[in-house]
Design a protein around this nucleic acid. Structure first.
Lengths: 116, 116
DNA sequence: TTAATACATGAACATATGTTCATATATTCA
DNA sequence: TGAATATATGAACATATGTTCATGTATTAA
């Protein structure tokens, strides 16, 4: 406990720590996972992976207020997981790229495969 | 705002909502992403993807208390993202399966590719 | 130009989370 | 047996998060 147990090969551990992605990368990754961790945001992403939608449509689909949806969309926007295209007074949202669809599908498969 | 804007095709939206994964699946997915959202837990998973490790080794590698590491490991264990194997007084942790490695790698690539 | 619609945002609140501290349990060694 | 080591866990605290409410801005329609 006081730093070193019999199993610890300190130079090896140091090497492994150096192999870690840098702090900035870790931070970005945890921010992305953080965004994917909310039921509401996950549902938004699942919906957007079916077709692009305006806020109204999302509001119709989900059982939360317009405000909550907008806040969620901002989070997703700031991480570049979704993008907006303004069409008159409508804001049409779509997935930023295929990576995000893949991420979600992968997790979905993991969950459904492993629970059977 | 009062439910329906001009763009909303209600039957279509209803259909899309039915295509969503069920609540239980959504919950499990958000729980997994929730677990991946902490810097400490992410680092643990990156380390374990290099080799299986005991708590002591993780303690040597990371700059947090043994207690914090144990708590993190419990979270990961409960979601079956890591597994333990007891060896005498040591608890040797390893990734539960390849899915989790893939998930992390995918996110890592997304972050590093998109920031260049 | 006024009203209505679509969306965004700040404040506030209740809840959740991560960490540390203190302590418990389990295994090994003397 | 008793002490040391390795790990786990409960409590507590500070911080973060998600939602709603109230309100702001921008666009369209009348």
């Amino acid at each position: 406990m006081n730093d070193i147990c019999i199993r610890v090969d300190e130079p090896l551990i140091k090497q492994m720590v150096q192999n870690l992605p840098d702090e900035q990368t870790i931070n970005k990754m945890s921010a992305i996972f953080q965004a994917l961790q909310s039921d509401t945001r996950l549902k938004i992403l699942f919906l957007l992976s079916q077709k692009e939608m305006c806020v109204c449509e999302l509001e119709c689909a989900l059982d939360v207020t317009q405000s909550a949806i907008s806040h969620s969309l901002r989070t997703l926007r700031q991480l570049d997981l979704v993008r907006v295209e303004k069409q008159g007074r409508f804001a049409i949202y779509h997935l930023a790229d295929e990576h995000i669809r893949t991420l979600i599908d992968l997790c979905n498969r993991h969950v459904t495969e492993c629970s059977t």
